[in-house]
Write a protein that binds this DNA or RNA. Structure first.
Lengths: 350, 350
DNA sequence: GACACATTTTAATAAATATAAGTTGACGAG
DNA sequence: CTCGTCAACTTATATTTATTAAAATGTGTC
């Protein structure tokens, strides 16, 4: 164990008096140059100065209170609707709660720069680790890596940088396709969201692949993608799809990027008087509340986001020796997908 | 400012030696009775002992890193759908972010007992205060009060216990009624949610009152309440309403407890082939994403939940002298309601 | 009653930190 | 120039905390 550092050592290193260091660390600003103030604090932090007087939270009885930080990919707000990440947070939250660990939202990718990240880490209450929700940019990930904290990436993997837990989208799509094919469907459509994110491509590719395996083809005209991934996007996708299918053999099986897209598509169908699941079947890669918020429940398949959150908690809690050195060996967990037949799919109409 | 306490004082009070206090606060457990260990820590925490050596995060330059805790009323999960509180959290979050204050979810009313609350407060990273979302039980509120922290209650007021910020539901309902009456509607219905919470009664009372002021009567048969306040509840309310109105003059203006109820009602209308807003108009006390998640946008009025969150942040940050002594004089803020004409209301059909 | 053992105190001191009082040097006014 | 003033420090010292060794206290055991 490194021996503790004293104010005197800091003072000597900086060429000032111990008194000044003491004043500064106690927050005295009057009569102290701003420059000195910052310099002394920076030195104290860097050298890992710990005040005497004890009382480090680490030693408090019973309590081992610490917290886990959460950062979100760019473009996501805390108030995001029924989106997957609120379920993930919930899973994380409940898993950590028993251990007296709380969850702090540190911000989104866009809000945090290196300075802010550093500040977060230099707090005293022990920060157990950080969970990253979604796909963030490489440099941001790098900056996080330099914090030397436990990191877990959720819904995106960062090979060589941290552990990750991702849903098994391939399996989800396969389950949906298999279900729909079993019901007799042959003409498929893809209603995609978040066109720019990798998850869209991944799911679409899985769809094409599985259909191919069943000797079916996904007509490119029936691949519709939207920028976002919310209800209105689903509605718009459905509208676009119908325009493209005008006068032709309509696809009877709509596979949707997520539940909100599916709900939007469903609403479009209601307005057009299209029967679901009488005329078309709708299925979504989803396992959020959107699936069961109201009847008809969605036919859906996805990895349980709460489970993913809970697993993230486990990864954070696990000791280095259990799962290899942090910052050395990384685990990529893939959460299994669960299929749930809902009320939006039925046998293909004649 | 209370003068700082020394280990010696703690020792004297407990009738032990200063050495022992020093040992304990530095985490020494060998050769120290478990009982003493806990006793000393408890005393140190209670008396607000602060180790010397300075470096309280509060004084770090630039950084004023601390956090605000959030607790939720019983029955709410973090993953709650598009509910108001996620908007409030978002408002809080963005308001605090600029100040380098982060948001930590401490749990729900049900998850936290006094011990846990105490632990939360005894962390060292400065906990700026706690925001309570929704109606919590009296004893829980009392327990919170004893923490001597800044408290702000949101969406429920706790006279004499803490500051609060509540929406102006009365005004919201008035705006909706005035709008609908101006469109010629005379037969109103109430689709209510969260039947057991005070907010339901408050809104319903406001509705009756405003209708009375316009010489209109709310027929009790057209007052439908559900246990929850989600989409399916809205659907069910609408179904129940239609059953009750069978063969009679249907109400043409549905006032909904919130946006999700309204969406559920809307879906019911779609399925029944009822035109909205051709045959009936739907309006909701709401200002969440549910209003604009998809077309038709809801006609709605409510206090902006993000604004409420931002105001909560202000209340937490304000200094005692600005707004009276904490724990003495309490402010009850009422956030103004904003009306937004949407696509679900139109003139009364003939 | 004597011994082993855990817990705590006493006492003494070293080490670290807080703080009052004093120094320094820069700057502006007269 | 020289005096006063002030911000920014330092010095010196008082106070507090850490650490150690030795002694005391109590508790159970043989």
């Amino acid at each position: 164990m490194a021996k503790r550092i004293s104010q005197d050592q800091i003072a000597k290193e900086l060429g000032v008096s111990q008194s000044l260091v003491s004043l500064v660390l106690n927050g005295r600003r009057e009569g102290v140059a701003e420059e000195s103030y910052k310099m002394i604090w920076a030195a104290a932090l860097k050298q890992g100065y710990v005040p005497r007087g004890g009382m480090h939270p680490m030693h408090a009885p019973d309590v081992q209170h610490s917290y886990v930080g959460v950062v979100m990919r760019a473009g996501l707000a805390l108030a995001a609707q029924s989106n997957t990440f609120s379920h993930v947070s919930h899973g994380l939250f409940t898993a950590l709660q028993h251990l007296n660990i709380s969850l702090a939202f540190l911000g989104g990718e866009g809000d945090l720069d290196e300075t802010k990240l550093f500040e977060v880490v230099s707090r005293r209450d022990p920060l157990l680790g950080i969970v990253i929700l979604g796909e963030v940019k490489e440099p941001f990930m790098q900056a996080l890596g330099e914090l030397e904290l436990k990191l877990v990436s959720v819904y995106a993997s960062s090979p060589g940088l941290c552990h990750s837990i991702v849903p098994n989208d391939k399996q989800s799509v396969e389950q949906l396709v298999d279900h729909l094919v079993a019901l007799g469907h042959t003409r498929f459509a893809w209603l995609g969201g978040n066109a720019k994110l990798g998850r869209n491509r991944l799911r679409l590719a899985a769809l094409k692949e599985r259909l191919a395996a069943r000797d079916l083809l996904l007509d490119d005209r029936y691949v519709v993608n939207a920028e976002g991934a919310e209800r209105q996007d689903g509605f718009d996708c459905a509208a676009e799809l119908m325009r493209r299918a005008e006068g032709q053999n309509m696809p009877t099986a709509w596979v949707c990027h997520n539940g909100l897209i599916a709900r939007g598509g469903l609403q479009f169908a209601y307005l057009r008087g299209i029967k679901v699941p009488g005329e078309i079947s709708i299925a979504a890669v989803d396992r959020t509340r959107a699936c069961t918020e109201i009847h008809p429940y969605l036919t859906s398949a996805a990895s349980d986001p709460e489970l993913i959150g809970a697993e993230a908690a486990k990864l954070l809690r696990s000791q280095p020796e259990e799962i290899g050195q942090w910052n050395k060996m990384f685990i990529d967990l893939v959460a299994p997908s669960l299929f749930e037949a809902g009320e939006t799919s039925a046998t293909r109409p004649e």
